[in-house]
Amino acid sequence: MKKSLWASSAFVVLGLILIFMPLSGYEEGIVALLCINCIAAMGVSLLTGFTGIFSLGHAAYMALGAYTAAIMTVRYGVHWFPAIVAGGIIAVLIAWLIGMPTLRLTGDYYAIASIGLGEAIRLVLENWQSFTRGARGFPGIDSYTSRTVAVGFFTVLGIGMFNLIYSRLGRELKASRDDRVAASLMGFHTPSSRMKALLISAFYCGISGALLGGYMNFIQPSMFDMMKSTELTAVVVFGGLGSMSGTLLGSAIVTSVMEYFRDISQYRMLIYGCLLVVIMVLRPEGLLGSREIWSFIPIQTLRSVFRPMPRPDARPKERG
């Protein structure tokens, strides 16, 4: 069976479990938060882990999604579903405007530019008093992000993402990450695939931000500062660059740890910092490295147990 089909079915099962598992109200909230964080992490992972573009400003796209959805639902009475999607789309539009000039940069240079751009967007939101209510924040958002909604978006976007990374575009991104010159010599239009990666990642972050607004019922620009951007990228590195399931695992672990230590909240960042240091020392390549989680399942062994005849097209075990 194709890997993307495996992943899709895994997502459906996971989604159903998360929706129908009996949980207390508090736990439901954590599940919703997990899904929200995972959506944003998937977006950043596509850009950082699969395309090799380091961004330190992706919280800004979350902010755009959050404010778009909040303003549409509160001020214009739009239904939450189109508002969330619109949040994603606005993030994509702004990412396109920003990406046009800045995606010519590579490596550290793009990372630095993205810090500036992220902060610029946050500052606009903070100072555009008449529209966004500025630094006071935006209260009174309906709590439309129920567990079902969050898990639903997570499942659909997750399936989309795993199909994407095994698609032709996914391969183009990985090629341009591994070697941009060689990729363009193979006839890949690398600038356009990099742009697509940025737009898709902005869409995921926008949706995630919009869901976060509905989850918190209140948003303010300082929720989407550089700290948040760094966290997004850190989670991806933590899970393993180039591993989408690693990103999800990393995001789940970091969110749970942060939640677990909520009681001693002034020390949370300390614990978070220690966790990152420990994992980077023990596993510099991140939790899963660049492999996906199912590559750790010993398929060869299972096969030999259940089907003694080796398949003729089975790929020999990797050497070296």
Binding site: D178, D179, V181, A182, L185, E318
Partner: peptide
């Protein structure tokens, strides 16, 4: 290309 530029992680 100069310096070959094969995709090292691929087979």
């Amino acid at each position: 290309p100069e310096g070959r530029k094969v995709f090292a992680p691929l087979t």
